[in-house]
């Protein structure tokens, strides 16, 4: 029996015995292709992410990092290929044909995932707390009092309990991003996707957001993080993915990829980053 099962059982979570998803990777991607018109942005991506694993994605601008992340949570529909979230397909290629999966099934399966954007995308007409409880009330249909209670816990967790009634316009970039993370965590996803969560921030605000993400890493949240923060990728990830021109060039533990990559392209890229 896997650790995962033991942990679920200990947490009083759903029993995974006999569950076909048990033992499945958190994310499984096969021959993922994505085109925008004539432009082929992803050209055959294969990737497995294990439960509790932290994967960083690096690579030059325009290499398709964001597009890959967006395909995983179906903000973009895959043109071709298979994507499974905890064993459940949101895209599936079978005998060279793309199966159609209903919109509501996809939305339901994607709820295992959370995503944090580069520019936060907070709801400007709602307070920090309003942002955090929105999904709980509308999607999870939680009673308001309960949602507020969880919302406050989430704000507490990202160190913003005192900002609960503040509108996003009055928050700093770092605070906005922490609210955005709290809003996503409130939905209790199993997997978090981050697309350059600190790129839009002033340098002095990067730290507070990284601290929150590092806390998640310590709790072994499954994460895929597209980042330009090489130190983050190096310290926290179990594996680092290097992408170029719509393909994964190399996947390796950080100590390998950052010091002795197989591909000269990666070395050139890393030299430029430093």
């Amino acid at each position: 029996m896997s650790d995962q099962t033991a942990r679920n059982a200990a947490a009083g979570g759903p029993a995974t015995v006999g569950d076909p998803a048990a033992g499945a990777p958190a994310i499984r991607v096969r021959t993922l292709h994505k085109s925008f018109g004539d432009l082929e942005v992803l050209r055959g991506i294969d990737l497995d992410v294990a439960p509790g694993e932290i994967v960083s994605v690096i690579g030059p601008s325009g290499s398709g990092k964001s597009t890959m992340l967006r395909c995983l949570i179906h903000l973009e529909a895959a043109t071709r290929g298979t994507i499974e979230i905890e064993g459940q397909a949101i895209a599936r290629e079978h005998d060279g044909r793309q199966e159609s999966i209903s919109e509501s099934k996809i939305r339901h399966r994607c709820r295992r995932l959370g995503m944090v954007f580069q520019n936060f995308n907070l709801f400007p007409h709602k307070t920090a707390l309003g942002n955090v409880i929105e999904g709980l009330i509308v999607v999870a249909r939680m009673p308001r009092a309960e949602a507020v209670e969880r919302g406050e816990q989430m704000l507490e967790r990202v160190g913003l309990a005192d900002k609960r009634d503040v509108y996003p316009a009055y928050l700093s970039g770092g605070q906005k991003q922490r609210v955005a993370i709290a809003r996503m965590l409130a939905m209790q996803p199993d997997i978090m996707l981050f697309d350059e969560p600190t790129s839009a921030l002033d340098p002095e605000l990067v730290g507070e957001v990284l601290t929150v993400i590092k806390d998640l890493a310590r709790e072994r949240m499954t994460m895929v993080v597209v980042t330009h923060e090489m130190s983050f990728a190096r310290e926290l990830s179990d594996r680092v993915v290097f992408m170029d021109a719509g393909q994964i060039v190399e996947i390796a533990p950080p100590e390998k990829l950052f010091t002795d990559p197989d591909h000269p392209r990666i070395r050139t890229f890393l030299e430029k980053m430093l």
Partner: peptide
């Protein structure tokens, strides 16, 4: 981005 944020929260 507003649609996308709503979408990743699971909204229809």
């Amino acid at each position: 981005g507003q649609y996308e944020a709503a979408r990743v929260l699971g909204m229809t």
